[in-house]
Design a protein around this nucleic acid. Structure first.
Lengths: 171, 171
DNA sequence: TATTGTTATACTCTATAACTATA
DNA sequence: TATAGTTATAGAGTATAACAATA
């Protein structure tokens, strides 16, 4: 278990990586902003899936996913076929044109990262990937327990309830 | 030097940490969104400074900084005093009220991180901080060389110029 | 009734560009 | 002429809520 000062610094660093993300965003084609690129990347990596699954992987509300998906579908980069098993659902699939776009995206981001990280070792990059991936998991897999834990012996300082892990707009 | 597949994965993870940042953002007081919190945090950590310095630390355009600073100044969390040495400039300083807000922010983010990262060791967190910090540095300190490097022997694949490191709107 | 997905609306963050006041 | 900072505007990303179609 780490201490308070470390958590504060971690929060700062998380805020700071935004600058790196913006740099990466600036090299994207005008027609394919970050949200659209994420859709293509995930469909390529994890295969065909439904909207709800994609929203979960992107960790955003499904309404947001719906907009990104509409964007890439309009450009012919993915197809939305009806799900025979559930007529409410649609199955998303990358098209060849989407694959081409993905190759281009990958080329650009790789070019930028290779330049900026030219003095990083494979191990360094791997460790960063590992830790960021674990960070994401630590935040994801924390559903509010079905049965609330017993109240603490000492009342905690007045604070709002922690954010839930909800990704879906409540009906 | 790392390879292409690794860079692609790194780009994915960078996109994915957005979810963590959003979780942290959800616990902020309504009056103090992420941008405002960053201003307070940096003034506390690095002391009084001018707008331009703050913009550099936040790695955003000064126009963006100006808005965030105006927001926190309106709420009395910072003061903007004229710089005697340069009348165009303003020196930003955290007020006691700003310090109080910062304590509250820190308490909330620490509470959330302590819960989510309860199974992380101090070393793990430290290593993640170190690597993220280095990542930020690798992107920052890469001004386009004043004298363009000699052309490469083999022409690179057709690609747009890489993003510059500019943080300021060109006049 | 509950769930899947869409759309309308509002808010935050960001960059660009035009502007001012100093240097 | 150049720099520090402000403001107006536009674009991307996100969440909430209301809705339609189906389970």
């Amino acid at each position: 278990m780490a201490e308070q000062a470390q958590f504060e610094e971690l929060a700062r660093q998380l805020s700071a990586v935004g600058a790196v993300k913006r740099d990466l965003g600036r090299i994207l084609p005008h027609a394919c902003p970050a949200g659209a690129a994420a859709v293509l990347m995930l469909l390529s990596r994890d295969g065909d899936m439904r909207m709800s699954k994609l929203a979960e992987l992107m960790a955003v509300d499904m309404s947001v996913t719906s907009r990104h998906v509409a964007h890439v579908a309009e450009r012919g980069w993915i197809e939305r076929s009806p799900d025979p098993a559930d007529k409410r659902s649609r199955i998303l699939r990358l098209t060849p044109a989407g694959g081409d776009m993905l190759v281009e995206l990958s080329r650009r981001s790789t070019e930028l990262l290779a330049e900026r990280l030219s003095d990083w070792t494979t191990e360094d990059v791997g460790e960063l990937i590992r830790l960021m991936s674990r960070l994401r998991e630590s935040f994801d897999c924390r559903p509010v327990p079905a049965v609330p834990p017993p109240p603490l012996p000492v009342p905690l300082p007045l604070s709002p309830p922690l954010a839930t892990t909800t990704t879906r707009t409540p009906a």
